[in-house]
Computed example of a mutant assay.
Amino acid sequence: MNKERLLNNFMEMLKIHSPSRKEGKYAEYLINLLKEMGASIYLDEGYLQYGGDSPSIIAKFPGDIEGEGVTLAAHMDVIEPNLNVQPVVEGNIIKTDGSTTLGGDDKGGVASIIEALRTIKEEKISHKDIYVVLTPCEEVGMLGAKYFNWDKVPEGMRPSKNMIVVDNAGAAGLIAHSAPSKYDIEVVFQGKKAHAGIEPEKGINAIAVASNALSRMNIGRIDDLTTSNISSISSQFPSNVVPDICKVAGEIRSHSEEKILDIIEYYKKACDEAVEKLGGTYKFDYQRDYPVLKPKDDLKFAKEFAKIYEELNIPSELKVIGGGSDSNIFAEQGFNSIIIGVGMNNVHTVEEYLVIDDLFKTTEAIIRYIKRNEK
């Protein structure tokens, strides 16, 4: 690979502002770049359903060898504040001046994919079909992946099911293969208003009911693969009014959706008991934000990529992670995903930085995997 070109391309991408729902300019840049590299392009218009301005991109580089190829994936949006990024190269890291996020999440992943493809083309490496999938709005609920209409994708543009998602935090060598499902929950407690100073006994304090219910719930780390969090409690009333409404919101994550549903039933029971004791009513709503990510091949794909890292003298580690990504959505759509990183650290903060050597290492690993996969 051309390390100087890779870094220059990464720096160029950092200058293109691409927050969630406003990735259009960056998408246009990438579409033109991929076309110049010889790719066939398909654009999915799922963004029309959620108010974005950028399509999801499928690029195909036809191979000269038959057989199942590979898909390389990343996302185009970045976490704000990210306008007018001022990158600073300091030894082996690239960071910002501290006023913005860097955007290495996930422009580092995109830059790595682009350089790997350029190298394969320039070295005239024989390969099976290579697909690239680039999504918008990953950072705000994986909307690009969720609203992707796969039924409309032409037969010849449907990506390989083995997918390498270049979007893992941490050093090169870390390979995530499993991630939890997440359910969002909201409980609205209904009490009864009364004057808090004159006749409070005639009221039912919705905050007190909510507090009683929460005290009965197991929140935080539930087991090795299950967590729960209450993130907001909302009830705004004057101090002289017994509040009759209190909204509680949070999430539950687990590698077992059955476990999540069991916890939801347990939480409902806690609400029942609180209402029975203090009065009032409640409404409990929940919905799945994203499904579980699990390997579909008993870790065969993940272990193959780990072997590539090891051949490059890069220590590898197969990981179960606690966060969600496009990979969770793609898994339900039939893809067998692994998530690898390019040295992104302190992501989603203005202290974000990227380790240059890790960017090089993972790019070389992708190139070597494609060479190996095509034999």
Score class of each variant (00 low, 15 high):
residue 72 L to F: 04
residue 49 Q to Y: 14
residue 159 P to C: 07
residue 155 E to Q: 14
residue 147 Y to W: 14
residue 132 V to F: 02
residue 126 S to E: 13
residue 123 E to I: 06
residue 161 K to V: 09
residue 65 I to Y: 10
residue 116 A to P: 12
residue 92 N to T: 11
residue 156 G to D: 13
residue 173 G to A: 09
residue 120 I to L: 15
residue 87 P to K: 07
residue 64 D to I: 08
residue 40 S to I: 00
residue 94 I to Q: 07
residue 41 I to E: 04
residue 106 D to T: 09
residue 136 P to Q: 05
residue 52 G to Q: 09
residue 39 A to G: 07
residue 63 G to K: 02
residue 105 D to S: 13
residue 31 I to D: 03
residue 113 I to E: 01
residue 92 N to A: 03
residue 100 T to P: 07
residue 47 Y to H: 15
residue 100 T to F: 13
residue 140 V to Y: 11
residue 32 N to I: 08
residue 42 Y to V: 10
residue 77 D to K: 01
residue 122 E to R: 15
residue 49 Q to L: 15
residue 39 A to L: 13
residue 38 G to R: 06
residue 44 D to H: 08
residue 173 G to T: 12
residue 33 L to S: 10
residue 153 V to C: 11
residue 40 S to V: 02
residue 170 G to A: 13
residue 84 N to C: 01
residue 122 E to Y: 10
residue 111 A to Q: 06
residue 152 K to V: 08
residue 156 G to K: 09
residue 109 G to P: 08
residue 167 D to Q: 10
residue 64 D to L: 04
residue 71 T to S: 14
residue 90 E to V: 02
residue 63 G to N: 04
residue 51 G to L: 06
residue 84 N to A: 07
residue 87 P to A: 03
residue 131 Y to G: 05
residue 75 H to W: 10
residue 165 V to S: 12
residue 122 E to C: 09
residue 36 E to R: 14
residue 169 A to Y: 12
residue 173 G to Y: 12
residue 158 R to Q: 11
residue 112 S to M: 04
residue 102 L to W: 00
residue 117 L to W: 09
residue 44 D to Y: 02
residue 158 R to M: 13
residue 80 E to N: 10
residue 93 I to D: 06
residue 32 N to A: 15
residue 52 G to H: 13
residue 103 G to P: 13
residue 38 G to F: 01
residue 37 M to C: 06
residue 80 E to F: 02
residue 45 E to F: 07
residue 92 N to G: 14
residue 130 I to M: 11
residue 98 G to Y: 14
residue 145 A to D: 10
residue 62 P to D: 09
residue 112 S to F: 06
residue 68 E to A: 12
residue 145 A to N: 12
residue 53 D to G: 10
residue 135 T to E: 12
residue 69 G to T: 07
residue 53 D to L: 02
residue 170 G to E: 10
residue 95 K to Q: 11
residue 75 H to M: 09
residue 117 L to D: 12
residue 109 G to V: 08
residue 96 T to D: 09
residue 38 G to P: 08
residue 107 K to F: 03
residue 89 V to G: 00
residue 127 H to K: 15
residue 37 M to W: 10
residue 168 N to K: 15
residue 52 G to E: 06
residue 119 T to A: 15
residue 79 I to L: 00
residue 154 P to S: 03
residue 51 G to K: 06
residue 104 G to Y: 00
residue 122 E to D: 15
residue 37 M to V: 11
residue 66 E to G: 05
residue 163 M to Q: 13
residue 76 M to W: 06
residue 62 P to I: 00
residue 72 L to N: 01
residue 156 G to V: 04
residue 117 L to R: 06
residue 68 E to N: 09
residue 146 K to W: 03
residue 77 D to Y: 03
residue 150 W to A: 14
residue 49 Q to C: 11
residue 155 E to W: 08
residue 136 P to M: 05
residue 83 L to V: 01
residue 157 M to Y: 05
